[in-house]
Design a binder for these strands. Structure first.
Length: 645
RNA sequence: GCCGGAGUAGCUCAGUGGUAGAGCGAGCGAUUCGUAAUCGCUAGGCCAGGGGUUCGAUCCCCCUCUCCGGCUCCA
């Protein structure tokens, strides 16, 4: 029975039954056959040597395809495991998938790997690649497989579980063999180890078996693999670029913030420049909250423990809360990890009617969370931070419009900081297995959250069951200047707190109703947001955010008075200006301003004093413009420094 | 919290079982210069903290703290 394959260009070609993927590829073209690493038949990836036994959409997969890279990385993981099992007798292996940009493999070994081990393993891997060992696919029964992997307890566990995610369905399992190395695997793989063009082992770490803290701690080795040495170099360059942008490095360098050891982990101090930046961001936050109809409230950092008992935090969140302190006749107090209970008390301070709703309460609320010691990470994961937090109380009728309103706000917020529509993605997390709250409310809310995203044309994916137990949520993610994805703001429904606190409003029919409560943070944590901003802009902030917008440099000391005049004019126009008064050379002063990433540099010399002009150089530009009239500079810089409308 | 790595001047890093060095930065002096580093001098270190081994420890061992890479967690 011949089979009909439809190629990506739409043509349908008939082939004899039993033809293999590589044979079809050869039939299409010898160069394609050479580049081929696998084929795809109706969405299923198959090894090149597998026979094709049915009609379907057919495509040859090469290393230019994302799937091709996944296969390359997966095969690289096998070679890694082969190298480790060869070099370290007694080692056993767990799982080794492809991940973004690379792969890893988890091992159980007597002694953890050292950087020297990594070199040794990498050398062995190179030898395996040079030997160009073919990957051979073999299927066998579970019983046989249990025999093959006897003594490898993790593999045995996988086979016994017959996890459909890791092993082909049914009783048969597939394994891949190259030389005497054999691994349980669904495949597909490269035709042979020699088809790995470029790889590098990058680091080691501990990892738990099955990701479970309570189970074996394994040794994980990470690597990266690419279609060419050039791609590998490009990847390593991107890593360097990310390091260059690291906010933990730029923060102190640009005098923005630091984490003094005396304070304790995860606690930052903001220096004057970072304080200026933060003030600008907070000002913008308040401006927009006001424009979007929010009211400002303030709640204390310390509240009676009973409040956290009512809210349920002491039941569900206690491990993140700092220990209580006993005051006034054994009254226990807690530092707040969240702002919600405070805002609820504001709501509850008097009887509310439907006429009060929607009530949007916001606060730049500083909270403290006792993050585990191993997870604090600069501003991105701090123990003390400030949320641009808000809690909105509304009726069911208002809910749809309100959700949309808050998402619009969040989008506007990100747009203003350089994350436009193209860089924003959302994630809609729905009801988990264990949840509280009225089922009807869950359904209505999830529907309205999705509808708002549709209407606002925000691309999103649904994370089924990933919502908090108290309500569904939308998380806003952005991609930064080098393509990394960050989770930023969030819009969350909360069915738990209104119930626990017994919130009510009086309807027009004079009945009591429980309001909907929407938790929304636009930036999330200001600290985290600013950390991401630093990395996004690589410390070179746009004019309106730059702590120092303009540096004025006199060519020689005799130009100092004129420099002061220029700075005065700019300052009067509302610009943030510094004069470099050091006795250094012009070249050195220019370099310092550039190193500090100041957006605008004005150099003034004899000609400028005589003509009322300046020499203008913008950050990121190699050239400068001489003899620009001071009035023009004031006008154009003021325009450049405009706050987003 | 767990696994691994690392802590030497403000920063980036050399260094040795016999009580420490460079570059940058800082201060001072000279230089007065037109767009990415002018020259010189000076100051600055409980070598993360504590304990041990040793005649002697920054160096070797143990503990603690902090940071880094992951894991885990992420109401």
């Amino acid at each position: 029975m011949p089979i009909e394959l439809r190629y990506p260009d739409g043509t349908i070609v008939t082939h004899p039954d039993g033809i293999t993927g590589i044979e079809v590829a050869r039939d299409i073209g010898p160069r394609l056959a050479e580049a081929a690493v696998a084929v795809r038949l109706d969405g299923h990836l198959l090894d090149l040597g597998r026979t094709l036994d049915r009609d379907g959409d057919f495509a040859v997969v090469t290393l230019d395809d994302p799937e091709g890279l996944d296969i390359l990385r997966h095969s690289s993981a096998h070679v890694l495991a082969q190298a480790v099992l060869t070099e370290y007798p007694g080692a056993t292996f767990a799982i080794g998938p492809a991940i973004e940009d690379g792969f890893y493999y988890d091992f159980a070994v007597e002694v953890p790997f050292t950087p020297e081990d990594l070199e040794r393993i990498e050398a062995r891997m190179r030898a395996i690649v040079t030997e160009d060992q073919p990957f051979e696919r073999v299927t066998m029964s579970r019983a046989e497989a249990l025999g093959v992997f006897a003594g490898h307890r993790f593999k045995t566990e996988i086979i016994e579980a017959v996890d459909p995610g890791e092993v082909a369905p049914g009783e048969e399992v597939s394994v891949y063999r190259n030389n005497d190395f054999i691994d349980l695997c669904r495949g597909p793989h490269l035709p042979s180890t020699g088809r790995i063009p470029a790889f590098r082992l990058t680091r080691t770490s501990g990892a738990y078996w099955r990701g479970d803290e309570g189970r074996d701690q394994l040794q994980r080795i990470y690597g990266t693999a690419w279609a060419s040495e050039g791609d590998l170099a490009g990847y390593l360059h991107r890593i360097e670029e990310a390091e260059r942008r690291d906010h933990r490095r730029l923060g102190p360098e640009l005098d923005l913030f630091s984490f003094p050891g005396e304070l304790g982990p995860g606690l930052a101090v903001w220096h004057a420049k970072g304080g200026q930046l933060r003030k600008l961001i907070e000002d913008h936050s308040r401006r927009l909250h006001e424009r979007f109809g929010f009211e400002f409230v303030f709640t204390p950092h310390l509240m009676k423990a009973d409040l956290w008992r009512i809210s349920g935090h002491l039941d569900y969140y206690a491990e993140y809360m700092y220990p209580g302190m006993e005051l006034d006749n054994d009254q226990e107090y807690r530092v707040k990890p969240m702002n919600c209970p405070g805002h609820i008390l504001v709501y509850q301070s008097r009887g509310r009617s439907y006429r009060d709703l929607p009530m949007r309460l916001s606060e730049l609320g500083t909270v403290y969370r006792n993050e585990k010691s191993g997870v604090v990470h600069g501003l991105l994961r701090a123990r003390g931070f400030t949320q641009d937090d808000s809690h909105t109380f509304c009726t069911e009728d208002q809910l749809g419009a309100e959700i949309r309103h808050q998402i619009e706000f969040t989008l506007k917020w990100h747009r203003d900081f350089g994350f436009d529509e193209r860089l924003v993605e959302a994630e809609l997390s729905t009801q988990p297995e264990k949840s509280v709250g009225d089922q009807a409310r869950w359904e209505i809310s999830e529907k309205l959250l999705a509808r708002a995203l549709d209407e606002l044309e925000v691309p999103y994916r649904i994370a089924p069951g990933e919502g908090a137990f108290y309500g569904p949520k939308i998380d806003i993610h952005v991609r930064d200047a080098i393509g990394r994805r960050w989770q930023m703001g969030t819009v969350q429904l909360d069915f738990n707190n209104p119930e626990r606190f017994g919130l009510e409003y009086t309807t027009s029919a004079n009945t009591a109703e429980t309001p909907y409560m929407i938790h929304c943070a636009k930036a999330g944590s200001l600290e985290r947001f600013m950390g991401v901003l630093v990395e996004h802009y690589a410390g070179a902030f746009p004019m309106w955010l730059a702590p120092v917008q303009v540096t004025v440099i006199g060519v020689a000391d005799r130009h100092h008075d004129y420099a002061v005049t220029v700075a005065g004019r700019l300052g009067t126009a509302g610009l943030r200006v510094e004069i470099d008064e050091s006795g250094e050379t012009v070249g050195d002063k220019v370099r310092r301003a550039i190193t500090q990433k100041h957006p605008v540099l004005l150099v003034v010399g004899d000609d400028d004093v005589a003509n009322g002009t300046v020499g203008l150089r913008l950050y990121g530009e190699e050239r400068d413009t001489r003899g620009v009239a001071l009035d023009d500079v004031v006008a154009s810089l003021t325009e450049m420094a405009r706050i987003p409308e």
